[in-house]
Amino acid sequence: MTHNLDALALEFARICSVAAVPVMEVYRSDFTPQQKADRSPVTEADMRAEAIILKALQSACPGIPVLAEEQFEAGVRPEVDDVFLLVDPVDGTKEFIAKNGEFTLNIALIEKGAPVAGSVYAPALERIYLGGRVARAGALQPGGSINADALSGIATRKTPPAKGAVAVMSRSHADERTRAFAGEFGVTQSLSAGSSLKFCRIAEGEADIYPRFGPTMEWDTAAGHAVLNSAGGAVTQPDRSPFLYGKSAAGYRNGDFIAWAVPPA
């Protein structure tokens, strides 16, 4: 299936829809967050969703190694080569705990360092984003079946609004360096968004740039990166060199990056 990237992204979306059912059960409950070794929060939703996703990926992508956030934390770290999968069962756990709806389930396929297919699902917002050869988005209820014909194509905008560029910022991690870069780019407005939705806001033409100075993990960004790429945008390092995946020597930790509506020259 990996050669048919649009079909694969659709399968990722189907898996995310199924995994979102227990996520929303936890979300609507009076849950108690726990703390991982790196002091980041985790909930029962992460564990339950990841188990469902991993089982489904064994059938959808047999033989392809998977790096999944909670298994990685538990020490399950398979060797990866040119082709592997990245899974974040609940991206934006702080948003999940705050119950603002801006958390996502993320699955992406990496080939030769680049994300080539991905799905970002925001179940509380009932919105799904897919990236393969093309980018699509639409409504999807948790546990609902996904129909490709019901999705609409999305694309980045090629010029900022006349009143100035729009930057999308993290609700949790925007800092002075981020704001300074945005100002140098000519940003006059900003949108706040959690999780991988920041990439998706650019992919659907609502913003022009997302600068991120600070650590993330590869599973945090890969699916959103895939959606943005397929919508006509790009993600680079701040020096505009390629932003790649499979950084085993760094423990799969990302460096700084910029997400663009229009790929830089």
Rank of each mutant, 00 (worst) to 15 (best):
F185M: 04
D88S: 10
G113W: 06
G131I: 01
E204Y: 13
A167Y: 10
P215W: 00
S230L: 10
G118L: 06
I209R: 00
D208A: 10
Y27L: 03
D149Q: 12
P238V: 13
T188P: 00
A124V: 00
E25A: 14
A234C: 10
G255C: 05
K36N: 03
G113M: 07
E44K: 13
Y129Q: 06
G118D: 06
F72S: 11
E176M: 08
G132C: 03
V227P: 01
C61V: 12
N229A: 01
G92C: 14
S192V: 11
L125F: 05
A148K: 04
V21S: 07
T216W: 04
K94F: 02
L86N: 02
G214C: 06
V76D: 11
V120Q: 05
P22A: 02
W260L: 10
H173M: 11
G144Y: 01
R77D: 01
E184T: 05
L151C: 07
L191Q: 13
A234I: 08
D256P: 08
R133T: 09
G214V: 02
F103Q: 08
L140H: 11
M24R: 07
S172Q: 15
R14I: 11
S145E: 14
C61K: 08
I53F: 09
D220I: 06
S192N: 13
A250Q: 15
V187K: 02
A108F: 05
M24Q: 02
R157M: 01
S248K: 15
I64P: 11
A222M: 13
A231I: 06
V21N: 00
N4M: 10
E206H: 15
A56W: 10
P22M: 09
D82E: 14
A250V: 09
A231R: 09
T236P: 02
W219Y: 14
A137K: 12
N147S: 15
A49V: 03
R179H: 11
G113Y: 03
L5D: 01
Q71N: 14
E184L: 03
L244G: 05
I258L: 04
P115I: 03
K163L: 05
E50S: 07
E206S: 14
K163N: 06
K112I: 00
D88M: 15
G138F: 11
A222L: 10
R28V: 00
R77Q: 15
G132F: 04
S172P: 03
